[in-house]
Amino acid sequence: MSIVVQEIEAPRVAGRRRLRLLTKRFLRRPMAVGGLLVALAFVIVAIFAPLLAPYSPGHTDFDAVLAHSSSKHLLGTDDLGRDVLSRLIWGTRASMQVGVFATLLAMVVAVPIGMIAGYYRGWVDQVIARLTDVLLAFPFLILAVGLAAILGPSLLNATLALGIGSIPGFIRIARGETLTLREEDYVPAAVLNGANDATIIFRHILPNMTNTLIVQATLTIPGAILGEAILSFLGVGVQPPTSSWGTMLQEAEPYLTQAQRLSVYPGVAIILAVLAFNVFGDGLRDVLDPRTTR
């Protein structure tokens, strides 16, 4: 009986042991832990925005236009008397959505392409790698702004534009990792086991590059968040009256001299979110790097 239990439990124990080691290493990095907590806070705010926001983002209070902080409006109101805190909370939702979905989109599209290029090499690789280089030659934001302008301004299109803009980076990483990993002896060993290409790619190569992909994702999300803000500020992203950090900045711009706080709040939110994800991603990279001993 005890033997049976042990056999069922053992594989999970091995996985858990690794997780515990990684957690221990992660907890040793206060910056990364802080980043994770702040990032998590933003995600929670985004998910529960309707419950957390005291007002709806479009609710106008004409008795308090450009009002300072008060018990009624914790962060004051904007030029139309809308509650800044509520708009900030709803804006978090837009920013997180764009950040996460743009990154997911880029991963789903780019990873298979990059892996095919790296695994088969030859002319397929030549074509994909050159196209990637061409795309990478455009600065990320220029590419995203151009795409968003073509697609038309909306939250979905901003996500698409930023996602497509993130694709070449992911392709390059997936391709590079595949090129390295296919040289490991367990790949020819799998061939000798009778594995086909799909088995080799998905069972032997992909699981070994998840670390790199996770790190790349946590570093792409802040890029997309920042991108969303910029697109919305330029008017090719989220459209007013929908609230996002970018639109808030844009709307605050004419009042820069009278009510700087309207620019400061969304600005701080953007900085905090981007910094949190970046710091968390950096910490994660260190922890997952097999050469890390600490």
Partner: peptide, 28 residues
């Protein structure tokens, strides 16, 4: 071809030089 060879792979295998690289680190 690799496909035709697959059934014959049962009869032929190889031990690799480097035991660190020949085992997939993500599998038990």
């Amino acid at each position: 071809s690799r496909r035709d060879l697959r059934p014959l792979r049962r009869d032929l295998h190889m031990v690799f030089q480097d035991p660190y690289s020949s085992l997939n680190p993500r599998m038990t």
